[in-house]
């Protein structure tokens, strides 16, 4: 379960990692070409929630998309249960590769507007069955994400954004993925439900024995639901490890600046720290000790 070295067949605990991404690179064409992801590696075990945090433009979304296969990798490898995850081209997705599913940021474009919600969840169920996994019912999934069981016959536009996102989550989980990649899944939701939905996602994936890669810019929520956190800046992981350790004792200057900039809602009227120019230069440093930090003794 490390962030840099890929897991061999079976780690110390004997559990094989679900997802192993090694040195993933993503380049975009342009003048000059842009390297959005610059050699990122992560391994996620079943039942583990790993968060990838960073600000806009750091490449976390590109990395997520590259892992799932909807963005072309310029380098590196991604393995799901030991098998390569191919790029999603014009071919039908291989049955084994349907074991990795994604939840997107925008709830409004995550569902087909012209199909009933239950039908769309059933698609997920069919995918699980095709892989030989257990079936389930759409009504059951709807209840598990906090919607009425009979809401299935409705169309997406009859739901709020938050509800649509939960339906999208239900559909993804109905496919019984071994790995769930969530790209800023709560950013577009109302503040009052963000934490609850994130916690729900954690709960449900744990129950399913799936691993979850949770992309977010919101560190406060991530602190609550992630076992490990990876901090990304300009395409690279600058710090990573056990969430509480990273949070309470950040080593890398960028992580420190990020955490210091978060306003604390305690009513004290304290302005968060705004990073100065001189400090920014230090963010590109590579500090090996900051990577793969274990639980503080």
């Amino acid at each position: 379960m490390s962030d840099v070295t890929p897991a061999a067949a079976g780690t110390l605990s004997g559990v094989r990692d679900v997802l192993t991404a090694v040195d993933v690179t993503v380049d975009y064409r342009g003048h000059p070409p842009v390297r959005a992801v610059d050699g990122v590696s992560v391994s996620i075990a079943p039942g583990e929630v790993v968060a990838l945090v960073g600000e806009s433009g750091c490449g976390k979304s590109s990395f997520a998309r590259a892992v799932v296969g909807i963005e072309k990798r310029s380098g590196g490898t991604v393995h799901l249960d030991g098998a390569d995850v191919p790029f999603l081209g014009l071919r039908r997705r291989g049955v084994q590769s349907t074991g990795i599913q994604m939840v997107f940021q925008d709830p409004n474009s995550s569902l087909n507007p012209r199909r009933r919600v239950a039908d769309q969840i059933n698609d997920g169920i069919r995918t699980a069955v095709a892989r030989g996994d257990a079936s389930s019912s759409a009504a059951d999934w709807l209840e598990r994400v906090g919607l009425a069981a009979d809401a299935g016959r409705r169309y997406p536009h009859e739901f709020s954004g938050g509800q649509k996102q939960r339906i999208a989550i239900a559909r993804a989980l109905a496919a019984r993925p071994h790995m769930l990649v969530a790209d800023e899944p709560i950013s577009a939701l109302d503040a009052s439900t963000q934490t609850a939905v994130a916690a729900l996602m954690r709960s449900l994936s744990l129950e399913a024995g799936a691993g979850m890669l949770f992309i977010s810019h919101d560190l406060s929520v991530v602190r609550r639901i992630a076992d490990r956190t990876l901090v990304m800046y300009q395409g690279r992981i600058v710090e990573s490890g056990h969430t509480e350790t990273v949070w309470q004792n950040p080593i890398h200057p960028y992580t420190q600046a990020l955490l210091a900039a978060i306003p604390i809602p305690d009513g004290a009227g304290r302005l968060p720290l705004a990073p100065l120019e001189e400090h920014r230069a230090a963010w590109t440093q590579v500090i090996p000790e900051a990577i793969d930090r274990e639980l503080a003794a």
Partner: peptide, 16 residues
Amino acid sequence: ADTLAQQLAAAAELPD
């Protein structure tokens, strides 16, 4: 998960 689901179900949200 079940408690969370109930909480979310109770939150009044108006459809789009």
